[in-house]
Amino acid sequence: MSVNQKATGFLAEFRKFIARGNVMDLAVGVIIGGAFKSIADSLSNDLLMPLLGLLTPSGLSLSGWTIGPVAVGHFLDTVLSFLITAFALFCLIKALNVFHRKKEEAPAAPPAPSKEEILLTEIRDLLKERS
């Protein structure tokens, strides 16, 4: 087997792998997750932190907190952003699950009776009338 055949086989296998649905779903999820992170960061930095700052007498700014030479504030900001992102995703997934459950629980209309059932019902009714 030549090097060219190995490369062609490898590329064909790679194309088959990429074309799978799971890989494409994962790629879309990563892209949407990145966009969602920017929304969560904005929620944290632009809405929640200023509101928390109003509740504290000196204003809340975690990014300036240090313990000796270690800048703890930025780490705490990152942890807070992660928690907000995780909580928002939890709420979103919970809402989607409720939506899907309601969609699944909706009773389907009973199927129309078949020709055989209609005929048997007519026969049953005729037999009742005779007796």
Results as ranks from 00 to 15, higher is better:
residue 92 L to V: 09
residue 55 L to E: 09
residue 42 S to P: 03
residue 29 G to Q: 03
residue 128 K to W: 05
residue 104 E to L: 12
residue 58 S to P: 00
residue 5 Q to C: 01
residue 125 D to N: 07
residue 71 A to L: 15
residue 80 L to I: 08
residue 97 N to K: 12
residue 68 G to C: 15
residue 45 N to K: 08
residue 118 I to E: 08
residue 43 L to M: 07
residue 78 T to A: 05
residue 116 E to V: 03
residue 124 R to M: 03
residue 75 F to M: 14
residue 103 K to R: 14
residue 33 G to D: 11
residue 118 I to W: 04
residue 88 A to V: 10
residue 111 P to M: 04
residue 67 I to F: 10
residue 85 T to A: 11
residue 66 T to Y: 13
residue 86 A to L: 13
residue 27 A to G: 14
residue 89 L to T: 09
residue 88 A to P: 00
residue 2 S to N: 14
residue 67 I to Y: 09
residue 101 R to F: 12
residue 47 L to D: 00
residue 111 P to E: 10
residue 99 F to W: 08
residue 57 P to T: 06
residue 44 S to D: 05
residue 81 S to Y: 00
residue 41 D to C: 13
residue 34 G to Q: 06
residue 46 D to R: 05
residue 6 K to L: 01
residue 62 L to F: 14
residue 30 V to M: 07
residue 27 A to E: 06
residue 100 H to A: 05
residue 110 P to E: 14
residue 9 G to D: 12
residue 18 I to K: 11
residue 121 T to D: 11
residue 47 L to W: 08
residue 39 I to G: 02
residue 102 K to V: 02
residue 15 R to I: 06
residue 130 R to H: 05
residue 88 A to Q: 03
residue 103 K to H: 11
residue 130 R to S: 06
residue 73 G to Q: 15
residue 83 L to A: 05
residue 93 I to A: 04
